[in-house]
């Protein structure tokens, strides 16, 4: 049984089938690439998996349990985290607090203990601060912990988005164009980082990315969408030769 399984998932906006009868399954430890021309429906797939939208039809299972239609926050707490294509950090908050907020989703503190500053709550806060800094270190952001997120350069904001998603301790990580706006050097570092995360935490990663060098370089499986429908699934080498894929990219663009 796959960790995350989509069966015949459709998302319709009025007359537009943004995602059409999509089948997709990812196992733990897998790096799965989702590509397709602009408007193919990749971000919509993320929104459907994470509960931003309820699919028009179809079944989504995480670890065997149906999750379609659940609230976004609930799905995150189950163990599916994401980043956003159009960076959505908490701009006025510090880099450290951005990560701490995500950590809080696994915490049991209530308003009462927080207000009374109980010893247990203080310990919990110290632990969260420590673990958050540790996480920032992995993403080479620890020296920026006190900066406001909105003041970071683009590449760092992208990395902070991933760090923040990681702080929710996910088993499936959805990355929506993490290399967008990065220079080639940064993209290569990011590739290594994504691979390292996968190996270190054995999580499944679903990667949407326009940078073909990144996708073909690190994904075991590549899934190609066009107009919401699957046109090919397979290992990178096979996808690169697939005439339908070449047609979709060259013909559509």
């Amino acid at each position: 049984m796959a960790l995350l399984q989509l069966s015949r998932v459709t998302m319709r906006f009025g007359g537009l089938y943004a995602v059409n009868e999509l089948d997709l399954s990812i196992d733990a430890g897998h790096l799965y690439g989702l590509i397709g021309p602009n408007g193919a429906g990749k971000t919509t797939v993320f929104n459907v998996i994470t509960g931003v939208y309820t699919p028009t039809s179809g079944d989504i299972r995480f670890d065997g349990e149906a999750i379609a239609g659940e609230r976004c926050g609930r799905i995150t707490r189950r163990g599916i985290a994401r980043t956003f294509q159009n960076i959505r950090l908490f701009g006025e908050m510090t880099v450290l607090d951005n990560v701490k907020v995500a950590f809080d989703c696994r915490q049991a503190t209530t308003l009462g203990t927080a207000m009374l500053r109980t010893a247990a709550h203080r310990r919990e806060e110290e632990r969260v601060a420590l673990e958050s800094l540790e996480l920032l270190k992995i993403f080479k952001l620890d020296h920026l912990a006190g900066e406001k997120a909105k003041n970071l350069p683009y590449g760092n904001q992208r990395r902070l988005e991933i760090a923040r998603a990681m702080a929710t301790a996910p088993r499936v990580l959805l990355l929506d164009e993490p290399a967008a706006g990065m220079n080639p050097q940064e993209s290569i570092e990011l590739m290594d980082l994504i691979r390292w995360i996968r190996d270190r935490f054995r999580m499944a990663i679903l990667l949407v990315e326009h940078n073909m060098r990144v996708v073909m370089g690190i994904c075991e499986t590549v899934h190609v969408l066009d107009y919401g429908s699957t046109i090919a699934i397979g290992p990178p080498a096979q996808i690169q030769r697939d005439p339908k894929v070449i047609e979709a990219y060259l013909g559509g663009a």
Partner: peptide, 17 residues
């Protein structure tokens, strides 16, 4: 912290659990 996160970006806050 979660209140300010909601102010900054409610969709992202929800997505962070």
């Amino acid at each position: 912290r979660t209140l300010v996160a909601i102010r900054e970006d409610e969709v992202a806050a929800e997505a962070m659990g």
